[in-house]
Amino acid sequence: MLAIFKKELKSYFLTPTGWIFLAVFLLVSGISFATQLVFPGNSQYTMFLTGLLFVYLFVVPLLTMRIFTDEKRFKTDQLLLTGPSNLWGIVMGKFLAALAVFLITIAVTFIYPLLLSFHGKLDWPMIIGTYIGFVLLGAAFIAIGVFVSQVSEGVVSAAVLTFCAIIITFIIDFMQQYMPTTEPSGLVWAVILIALPLSWLYSSGKNWAVTAAVALVLAVMLLLFWFFGRTLFFGLIGKSLGWLSLTRRFGSFSMGILSLDAILYYLSFSGFFLFMTVQSLEKRRWS
């Protein structure tokens, strides 16, 4: 894992990718720092950071689009997958390298609050909290990007799909309000949600008996809930979409609260996409 991490980090700065990431992020944040905080004489640093979140939309795809697509294009995956490292080592090495580039960039932006602190008192706990949230959110987006670059065939499609995935997590909060909240709609949604992992289970094992058994158990559970705990289905669509809303949980950090809930949420979100990446790598060997 360490070997891959070091090589990837080096490659980021041997090719334009790392530098472009650094330049774009610092340019955009610098401009908005000047216009929002310095000229108006404002010191609402956390609001400024929250406003920067949209930059992720453009810079994360740039950082992750080549991670696995180039390995496939130049057949270097044949070296990685026939070496003594396991798949987790490969995926984590690459993920952590992208995260490191991101952290280096974020570290540079620490100059801004330091500059501000010469002019007025800053609420440091709030700033640190926001930074932690910023990094956790970035890690989750990068994990999405890593997964997308593994499942897409080309660099361009990886970048576009990552962009779309991130945009969805941004607007999902907004979409949530327009979803039906009735109990039957919740039931239909639950069936769809169950069908997805089932189809994945079948495609990865091609085992009808196991899939059918799991499906039966889940169906019985659904029916039990339907008759004895129907309120569960009320507003289920909105609730489960809310689970995907990465930005909503960012709020608590920018208020200076380190909630264990939110931290665990971001970590497990990243973990889930890295797990899916490993699964997808494994599956490619069989298909």
Partner: peptide
């Protein structure tokens, strides 16, 4: 196993030394 695939799996942006250093560490 040491494997030379049909298309050599080379990282084009590295120098020969950097590449072989990576492979030794990786293996």
């Amino acid at each position: 196993i040491g494997y030379l695939p049909e298309q050599p799996p080379l990282y084009l942006d590295l120098t020969v030394d950097e590449y072989l250093d990576f492979v030794t560490e990786f293996k």
